[in-house]
Design a protein around this nucleic acid. Structure first.
Lengths: 165, 165
DNA sequence: GATTACATGTCAACAAAGCTGACGTATATC
DNA sequence: GATATACGTCAGCTTTGTTGACATGTAATC
């Protein structure tokens, strides 16, 4: 390690230097801000926050999902989720129906109003994502997805792949 | 749009479908959780939060940076940043020195104790990033960086590229 | 030299969204 | 009948963001 430059194993490992990793870390930080910026603006207008967005997104993705399932995906306490769900239900964006198989469960679904907001939020977020994808190109997108997937915790990767084709 | 399958322009644009974009959005969400998980654990032990981590990170990256500069990078109010800086300075992790050119400015630097914590945090975060990079490979990493960069706001991209080689 | 602008710190009050702990109710399961 | 599970809720606390107001010291400008 003292002489002869950086150690390498056949092909270059320069992309694993601390400096490259630091750039990756900052890229995540700055990009995540851009990623949430547009929905945040829309949410603020309507008196909602990012937590509402997350609930709405995953209810949209998995209609009739249960509270417990949502808790697993979001990784928050039921008290925290409940505060969000309560307002969404009270405002008529989410409908909660008693389970048919298991009557202890509540199935969550977006109402028409909820779907409208979901569409507005996801359109804004997708527009930015689409522009970034288009600018970077299909190969970059594949790499983007591969790295992000490798960065997830095991448990999250399962939730992520649930709807994989 | 009604007949003949999805419209394409020469090369395939299948990577821009709403479904692909949704996967990208969820990848960002789940990966960001993994990205912050390890530092969060270390911080919790020491009674700090993510806001402290961010301040420490950028002071480490740009020693003798000013409060104003940090405000721009972090995008929070000075009251919010000050609360964090105050505890870091009181705990002896950050040193604040009056500017030499402009005595209104305060230059922020990590103390030895601050550098020790920074190292602990960044090592944990880099370890995960390195594993992800290694698993995905150099080409994927280039794509990862390209997409993230395209996703940033203009202003953030400038901060990101400041230290570019 | 007086005025204005800027960099910073601070007080107060508030909000979003996370947390723990405790308790209640309905339903399933053993 | 006892126990476990799914959900809801009350209370209280923490972190981290916000706005608004005000003070101090320094720089820049007229």
């Amino acid at each position: 390690m003292a002489l002869g430059g950086p150690p390498q194993t056949g092909q270059s490992l320069l992309f694993l230097t601390d400096e490259q990793l630091r750039k990756g870390i900052e890229a995540m930080f700055f990009a995540y801000r851009g990623f949430t910026a547009d929905p945040d603006r829309i949410l603020a207008e309507k008196g909602y926050g990012r937590a509402h967005h997350r609930a709405i997104h995953f209810i949209h993705r998995s209609p009739r999902t249960t509270v417990n399932n949502l808790l697993g995906i979001l990784g928050v306490t039921k008290q925290s989720l409940n505060r969000v769900l309560r307002t969404l239900i009270a405002d008529g964006l989410v409908q909660s129906t008693v389970g048919t198989q298991d009557k202890r469960e509540r199935h969550l679904t977006l109402t028409d109003a909820g779907s409208t907001l979901e569409k507005e939020l996801s359109t804004a977020q997708r527009d930015r994502m689409r522009d970034a994808y288009r600018e970077a190109g299909p190969e970059a997108v594949a790499g983007f997805r591969a790295v992000l997937e490798a960065m997830m915790d095991e448990e999250m990767r399962r939730y992520y792949q649930v709807l994989e084709e």
